[in-house]
Nucleic acid binder design. Structure first.
Lengths: 340, 340
DNA sequence: CGAGTTACTGGAAACGCTGCCAGTTGGCCG
DNA sequence: CGGCCAACTGGCAGCGTTTCCAGTAACTCG
């Protein structure tokens, strides 16, 4: 069970076995110049034979860089975040960085994360995914001297970031509904109750679009709820209790839309004949449920974020703000209103 | 932008500022005995004021333990894995461990992971999630001297592990279908093409249940496909092309079932009137789509796995194999066959 | 053939911490 | 009042690297 008497070999061991000096062994292994081919060959051979790998801790202690990047996410079991992390991971891994994952699920986690800063001195950089960083938290983060900070999937003007234009995505959704002739459009506004409230471009787009179309907005048609299927379902139930039903629903995300769709159908109404519905994200299940939506490429956001970070770490001159496009995917949940 | 002249404070700085020796400062900060209350107080105060934190690299170099655990997953954007990692993370974090995430998406990633063993010397333990480890890979892993290895979500008799009993879960699903009176039951068998083929308990359960019920199994009723909605959809299409349709479908996972459901409906058939369908997992969307399924508690598997690992790391006497229960959740996709 | 390269090589010092051991107190007992 | 013990304290020696510098050998050129 525990045959731990076998000590891991150190660089000194390898040097001795190869009959060279410490410095030479180090240079040989790292591919630095000033090592004769023969010597290098010998060192590499010995190292290979003994399955030697450098101790990252020792190496990092000396070099000062950790070779690690922290990724902070508020959720993980949601498609969006999994996809994002996959994108980030792929780039980081290729660049030889390790990825330290921190999950700050609720407000308490979040608070303790920024208070304790567990990533302190453990990483060269931090990627914050999908939530805005508050001023106080920002200051704590600054404490991580030298650590670069990059944000993904949310607007954070303070840091270099990659995201989509929520206002534009919302406008595309609303534009589609308006173009179909809808005038009585409801919105299911999704917020994350565990994160501080932020002004949402997706909400702004709703009001702006209505305004531009000279439609007086009816406050009763806007319902705010937490993110999620069940929440979307409940929100829709509320909408269906209205005296005058909307002819279309603009949901802040596909998941919310999924819930709403169920409620609509359970109420005996048809989609899109009685009510149209549109989401945002193009969640994998959107195609399954034939949901019209606004597609965003989440994985690509992850990839670009990681690449941006690498550039920053290399002190390259790089673009510090990238906004990815979104586009409408029409499926079968939207149509012109019946009396339109 | 780069005000990096500010050097991080070292323990020596703190000791000097507090007017104590190096050893005393170290003991004071770590809560070790043999420090007078007054001295400790002073040291803590100075450290606090200067936002000092120990350099984990230096500390670990000396102590030999890294305080990190590697988690290896084949997917991330799938609900199952996100949920699992969330469970693992919550426990690890609380115990003060950091979580290094490795994503081995395809065979190539997987191969290079086990060949390069990037986690080597970087972690105290490894958690392998959701896939079996082959013998050759196992041997590579053993190289990580002293690193504990634990498996979650797949059967790996070689390592301590937490999982569900796939055979039993499958039996529960088949039992339900049989109890409803179905005799012509199809199976959509899902495999991960990127992972080596493994004997699946879920498949075995199918044949066993049929056998126990004295039903001759029809090879045409078993279709094998990759994991995923679209794949389930295609597999179902194949099933629908049969001369004599099945009255029920047993899908290896909810996601596969989702795809199959769409195909069934698109073909103009009704669920469950024309065809019943059951899945396994209780994916969040199962409730949405009213899918009858076998529920497993994935997050709990993650939690238990991490706890088991912590026990191992502490050299506790612990249970080295945990099998979690599963249970049937009847929703609206299963009913007795019409001519039953 | 001597001086000045160039191409390598070895090893000491340092990175920031922890473990250890040898002090240095002060108090207590006989 | 001397000796002894307990309670603290200081600082040295590593941990396994990398970095740097001094050294050696071989080679070139006038």
């Amino acid at each position: 069970m525990d045959s731990e008497q076998e000590r891991e070999l150190t660089l000194a061991d390898i040097a001795r076995l190869a009959g060279v000096g410490l410095g030479t062994a180090s240079r040989a292994l790292r591919g630095l110049p000033n090592v004769s081919p023969a010597t290098r060959q010998k060192v590499l051979e010995v190292a290979e034979r003994h399955d030697y790998v450098v101790s990252p801790d020792a190496s990092q202690l000396k070099k000062g860089a950790t070779g690690r990047v922290a990724v902070v996410v508020p959720h993980l079991s949601r498609w969006f975040f999994g996809e994002m992390v996959e994108g980030i991971e792929s780039v980081l891994r290729q660049a030889g960085y390790d990825l330290l994952l921190y999950h700050v699920g609720n407000l308490q986690d979040r608070q303790s994360f920024f208070e304790l800063l567990p990533a302190r001195r453990k990483v060269d950089a931090v990627i914050v995914v999908g939530f805005p960083v508050e001023e106080a938290e920002r200051q704590r983060l600054e404490l991580m001297l030298g650590a670069q900070i990059v944000a993904a999937g949310g607007q954070h003007e303070v840091y270099p970031h990659v995201c989509i234009d929520d206002l534009k995505a919302g406008s595309q959704a609303m534009g589609h509904l308006l173009a179909l002739g809808h005038r009585r459009i409801a919105m299911i506004e999704a917020i994350d109750p565990e994160q501080p409230r932020q002004p949402s471009g997706r909400s702004a787009a709703y009001h702006m679009a209505l305004n531009d179309a000279d439609i007086e907005s009816d406050p009763a048609l806007v319902v705010t709820t937490a993110w999620g299927i069940e929440q979307g379902s409940t929100a829709m139930a509320h909408l269906l209790s209205l005296a005058e039903l909307p002819t279309a629903v603009y949901a802040h995300s596909d998941e919310v839309a999924f819930g709403a769709m169920r409620t609509i159908r359970d109420a005996g109404l048809r989609i899109p004949e009685d009510i149209s519905i549109i989401g945002i994200d193009d969640h994998p299940h959107a195609a399954l449920l034939h949901l019209t939506t606004i597609k965003q490429d989440v994985r690509r956001q992850g990839v670009l974020t990681a690449q941006m970070l690498l550039g920053l770490l290399r002190h390259d001159e790089i673009e510090r703000s990238i906004t990815l496009g979104t586009h409408l995917i029409v499926r079968r949940t939207t149509a012109s209103p019946r009396n339109g």
